[in-house]
Amino acid sequence: MSKLGRSSKQNIVLLIILVALCVFFFSQNDRFISMRNMMSMVRQSLPNLLLACSMMFVIASGAIDLSVGGVMGLSAMFYGYLCIWGVNPWLAIPIIMVFGAGIGVLNTVIMEKLKIPAIMATLATWIITAGMALTVCNAIPISDELVKPITAWNSMKFFDSIPLALFIVVAVIIVFIFLEKKTLLGKYAIAIGGNDSAAYYAGINVFKMRMIFFILSGVIAAFSGIWQVGRLGSADPTIGVGMEFSVIAAVILGGVNIKGGEGTILGVVIGTLILMILTNGMQMMGIDSFFQQIVTGIVLYVAVLVNSLGGAKKKINKKMVAAKE
Rank of each mutant, 00 (worst) to 15 (best):
V68N: 05
V68L: 10
V68C: 08
G69E: 12
G69W: 14
G69M: 09
G69Y: 13
G70K: 02
G70Y: 04
V71M: 12
V71Y: 05
M72H: 05
M72V: 05
G73C: 08
L74Y: 14
S75A: 14
S75I: 12
S75R: 03
S75F: 13
S75L: 07
A76V: 12
M77H: 02
M77R: 05
M77G: 01
F78S: 12
F78K: 11
F78Y: 14
Y79N: 01
Y79E: 00
Y79L: 01
G80P: 13
G80Y: 10
G80K: 10
Y81G: 00
Y81V: 09
Y81K: 15
Y81H: 04
L82N: 09
L82W: 03
L82Q: 08
C83A: 14
C83Y: 00
C83L: 09
C83F: 01
C83P: 06
I84P: 00
I84G: 00
W85I: 03
W85Q: 09
W85P: 00
W85G: 06
G86C: 00
G86T: 02
G86M: 03
G86Y: 01
G86N: 00
V87Y: 00
N88E: 10
N88C: 09
N88P: 05
P89F: 06
P89Y: 11
P89I: 13
W90C: 08
W90I: 13
L91T: 15
L91R: 04
A92M: 12
A92N: 06
A92Q: 10
I93W: 03
I93L: 05
I93H: 01
I93C: 02
I93K: 01
I93D: 00
P94S: 11
P94I: 13
P94N: 11
P94Q: 09
I95N: 04
I95A: 14
I95H: 06
I95L: 14
I95Y: 00
I96K: 10
I96Q: 07
I96M: 12
I96F: 04
M97P: 03
M97I: 15
M97C: 09
V98W: 04
V98R: 08
G100N: 09
G100R: 03
G100L: 09
A101E: 03
A101P: 01
A101R: 02
G102I: 11
I103W: 08
I103M: 15
G104Q: 07
G104E: 05
G104C: 11
V105M: 02
V105N: 05
V105Y: 01
V105Q: 01
L106T: 15
L106F: 10
L106R: 02
L106D: 11
L106Y: 03
N107R: 07
N107W: 05
T108G: 07
T108N: 10
T108P: 03
V109N: 03
I110S: 04
I110W: 08
I110V: 14
M111N: 11
M111R: 07
E112N: 11
E112Q: 15
E112G: 04
E112M: 15
K113T: 07
K113E: 03
L114S: 13
L114F: 15
L114M: 14
K115N: 14
K115I: 01
K115S: 11
K115A: 14
I116E: 02
I116C: 09
I116T: 14
I116R: 09
P117R: 11
P117M: 14
P117V: 13
P117T: 12
A118D: 06
I119Q: 10
I119S: 12
M120H: 09
M120A: 15
T122V: 09
L123F: 15
A124T: 15
A124Y: 04
